[in-house]
């Protein structure tokens, strides 16, 4: 019995190595977590604070600024100087409400359009010959890696009054005079749908590609028409892809700046652009911060909704 292993019930094992392991487990997240807290968490508290401040012609251009060496008195002065003035402005001035409504409306309409445009493409990709699919995915990904700014810029030459779209329509005799598309709401929708299309198509494709073909065949075998099989099997099973795609499109579109700025003209107000001009043109940092808070509140709703949908899906069938 000299070289055998022996197992016997007896003493409890020591906790030494486990404690070191736990230390490592805590240290590993500490670095990225700390970074995110400082550069992502903390800034939101600052935004909140500044949204309660007043603009000033100073550096930094807001007041009050906390005097860290002033003790309790400085703190109470600081807190007393904070107010909801900027939020009152947001409510009182119809411009901000209009911007919020336009942002939500554009995001909603664009998401619906993205589903209508993206679903057939994703479906076509998933049904394409297996050997062709990697190429199609790459073709879908290349625009995503290409500069957003450039892709939106490319539309200016097309949508302009004397642009290619008008020229083509005129040449085909479909219109008699050039139509103004650039600097309108439809131009924004075209730009947003164009820019976000890969974000809708790729998650949908991922779901549809994994879909078991025999499920559809089973539905057909059980007497469902092509359309019925699609509506009762394919569509419900692609819900996760729809939710993911909608999440990736809807929320960023609410805050979109480049598209409305380049294609929307001076009259279309969206929140991202309002924030930008309050900050850069008017140098009203507190109001810009208040707009950011408003945008956060608007975004929070959909985020919670999508997370719930995701959680419900993970819990299993309804």
């Amino acid at each position: 019995m000299n070289a055998g292993a022996r197992m016997k019930a007896g003493a409890r094992m020591s906790a030494g190595p486990r404690r070191r392991d736990r230390l490592r487990r805590l240290l590993l997240p500490a670095v990225p977590f700390g970074w995110l807290l400082v550069f992502f968490g903390l800034p939101f508290l600052i935004v909140l604070k500044i949204s309660l401040s007043d603009p000033a012609t100073a550096l930094p251009p807001y007041t009050p600024v906390l005097n860290w060496d002033g003790g309790v008195a400085a703190w109470s002065d600081f807190l007393a100087a904070l107010d909801f003035e900027n939020y009152r402005t947001l409510i009182a001035d119809p411009l901000y409400l209009a911007a919020a409504t336009t942002s939500l409306g554009v995001a909603l309409a664009a998401t619906v359009l993205l589903v209508l445009v993206g679903y057939p493409i994703a479906y076509g990709m998933a049904r394409a010959p297996k050997g062709l699919q990697p190429l199609l995915v790459a073709l879908m990904v290349i625009p995503f890696w290409t500069s957003f700014l450039i892709r939106i810029y490319a539309w200016i030459a097309i949508l302009k009054g004397d642009g290619l779209l008008n020229k083509a329509l005129l040449a085909l005799g479909l219109i008699a005079r050039p139509v103004e598309i650039l600097n309108t709401l439809p131009a924004i929708l075209i730009g947003v749908v164009y820019a976000y299309l890969p974000f809708m198509v790729l998650p949908l494709y991922a779901v549809l590609e994994r879909l078991d073909r025999s499920l559809i065949e089973a539905a057909r075998d059980l007497g469902a028409s092509r359309l019925k099989a699609f509506l009762t099997v394919t569509l419900p099973l692609s819900a996760p892809g729809l939710v993911a795609g909608a999440l990736l499109c809807f929320i960023p579109i609410i805050g979109e700046f480049i598209v409305p700025d380049l294609l929307g003209g001076p009259d279309t107000l969206m929140l991202g652009r309002v924030l930008w001009s309050e900050f850069f043109s008017n140098r009203d940092w507190p109001l810009a911060a208040a707009v950011a808070m408003l945008m956060l509140v608007i975004v929070a709703g959909p985020v919670v909704f999508f997370r719930e949908a995701e959680a419900r899906r993970l819990e299993g069938p309804p």
Binding site: N2, A3, G4, A5, R6, M7, A9, G10, A11, M13
Partner: peptide, 9 residues
């Protein structure tokens, strides 16, 4: 092991 020993040699 939650309790017990493993002896080798």
């Amino acid at each position: 092991p939650s309790a017990g020993r493993i002896l080798l040699d």
